[in-house]
Nucleic acid binder design. Sequence first.
DNA 1: AAAATAAGTGTCAATTTTACACTATAGAAA
DNA 2: TTTCTATAGTGTAAAATTGACACTTATTTT
Lengths: 233, 233
Amino acid sequence: MVEQYKQQRPYLLALDSIIFGFDGEGLRVLLVKRGIEGSTWSLMGGWLQPEESLEQAAARILFELTGLTNVYLEQLHAFGDPYRDPIVRTISVAYFSLVKVADYESNLSEAFQARWFSIYDLPTLLFDHADMVELALKRLRYKAAQHPIGFELLPEKFTIPQLKKLYDAIYNTDFDKRNFSRKILSTGLLIKLDEKQKGFSKKGAYYYQVDAVKYGQLTNSFLNFIPNTDTIL
Amino acid sequence: MVEQYKQQRPYLLALDSIIFGFDGEGLRVLLVKRGIEGSTWSLMGGWLQPEESLEQAAARILFELTGLTNVYLEQLHAFGDPYRDPIVRTISVAYFSLVKVADYESNLSEAFQARWFSIYDLPTLLFDHADMVELALKRLRYKAAQHPIGFELLPEKFTIPQLKKLYDAIYNTDFDKRNFSRKILSTGLLIKLDEKQKGFSKKGAYYYQVDAVKYGQLTNSFLNFIPNTDTIL
DNA sequence: AAAATAAGTGTCAATTTTACACTATAGAAA
DNA sequence: TTTCTATAGTGTAAAATTGACACTTATTTT
């Protein structure tokens, strides 16, 4: 049994992060310079360390770039085509994360030459990173339709028009604002604050924040798409 | 750059398969005997070979056990806790697959001591395999609510009552047969055959089969849960 | 011929979705 | 101070979908 292990060839194991952000206008992905002469844009990545879980490694790598902790992080997919990395065969486990751009101190980015790119206008990427971004975008769309994860991309306090702009950006469409706010508010997940947003529009939109208690409960069944499978069994 | 690769420690990379089947009564998982003295039930698994992609490896391992090809196979999750395998650190990429039990020749199972278990009555499993099964079941439920993957568990020709029993088993519930058949037929995905099932009931239920053309188109938006994101961009 | 068993089907009320346009507010400009 | 302008905010009616509910049909067995 143990001999069976010894005969096996080991592989390098990397992690790559698709980091989504929303700046109020469009959906962005954070990329860094990498490659032979630092000439190619790539996803932020790193190597798995001996005492780390995959999730811990992904969180560490995200922290090294952004200085952020407590960030939404979800495993996307393991990529393992034999020649995806032409130098040495490397399996990469991709994670996607949603960060609040406002929280992101850009000071740390310089070491990595990080930059936000619009998801609709990406440069050529290293290895199979374009596939990773494409899959991550699919997953984000899929997930945001059913789970309240959009809020992870917004500041603590946000307005309904901001939220709508975010969803517009994610789905590259233009939702009807009446139907949108009815649907969002019907989840009971938002708490209206007394404060209004200043500066952007003359009238000013009310700020809302997520009801943390309800947010914790609603992992599934957000927008009535899917029955809450937690309670089926 | 290349030196950076050399400093990294490699890890063993395994694959494990959660193989679901449906025998007309309940949802089953195929398990094999493994462990120190072949004493423990475990998922079917194997090692990644140098020239294989992850998907190819998972398909090969599935073939070695069941003799089946062209089986529904989907990557579930990469499991990489440092001590999940107490002997040597091993990253396992879990795949879940849906097989038609009728197709499965049980001849090959003997080499692996394979057996179908009800998902509601599993034995103690090796390592973190119980977590894998749990996650796979969640994914199956999640997915079957939106995508027409249930058919992968049934023979080519099946009746509506059979399909309902399958969904009942997946969600451990009892759907209303009128609403169920209305909903399923409204997808336009099923073709009614002239033939009736014999032997099971006196009246006999009509056989249906999946419309292959429409099946290819409908990857999302099966039961109207999710807008078809393929067409959004 | 009657009984038994599972298949197959229809309706109505409630809910949800979709399409669509006007009013309110507050700052800026005249 | 009045007017203008830009965005916020809100309601309704038709259509589609869902959910609850029970009887008839077809065939085999007795």
